[in-house]
């Protein structure tokens, strides 16, 4: 998780102008590691969900985390595709810094909701219902 969020934070900070305007293409090479780490998140997340499905699926915070995570990953994918299509010009798009800010917020929501999941569940096992 730290690698996925961390790499996105670095790229988003560059896109919102926190870093000097060096070429973006080399920085995007970190995305290879990012997608590898995202695959690890998917597998470990799926394992946790399979172990305690009722705990997650009955908790609204789980859906908040999932929505924020998927939205943030979609923004990452959009940035990657746009850079491949338009080259360095893509950061001239007005939408890009706005999406980068949104992405930063979404990652904070993902991490926060993830931690709150452990404290907000009301059901642990589905067997409680029968």
């Amino acid at each position: 998780m730290a690698f996925v969020v961390g790499i996105n934070i670095a790229i988003n900070l560059r896109l919102v102008g926190f870093l000097p305007r060096f070429p973006l293409a080399p920085l995007f090479r970190f995305y290879r590691l990012h997608w590898l780490a995202a695959a690890v998140i998917f597998l470990s997340g799926l394992s946790l969900l399979m172990a305690y499905p009722a705990k997650a699926l009955t908790n609204p915070v789980f859906y908040l985390k999932l929505s924020a995570l998927v939205s943030a990953l979609l923004i990452s994918r959009y940035f990657q595709k746009m850079l491949a299509l338009t080259g360095e010009n893509f950061e001239l798009e007005r939408l890009v810094p706005r999406l980068a800010y949104l992405s930063l917020v979404l990652w904070i929501v993902t991490v926060t909701a993830g931690r709150f999941l452990a404290y907000t569940h009301s059901v642990l096992l589905a067997s409680r219902f029968y």
Partner: peptide, 24 residues
């Protein structure tokens, strides 16, 4: 406790996103 944990994790992500990326 969960609020402190969330801040702890965000701090960790900042650390990996900057120092970790520099290490890579």
């Amino acid at each position: 406790w969960p609020l402190a944990e969330s801040i702890h994790f965000i701090g960790l992500c900042l650390l990996i996103g900057t120092v970790g990326v520099f290490d890579l």
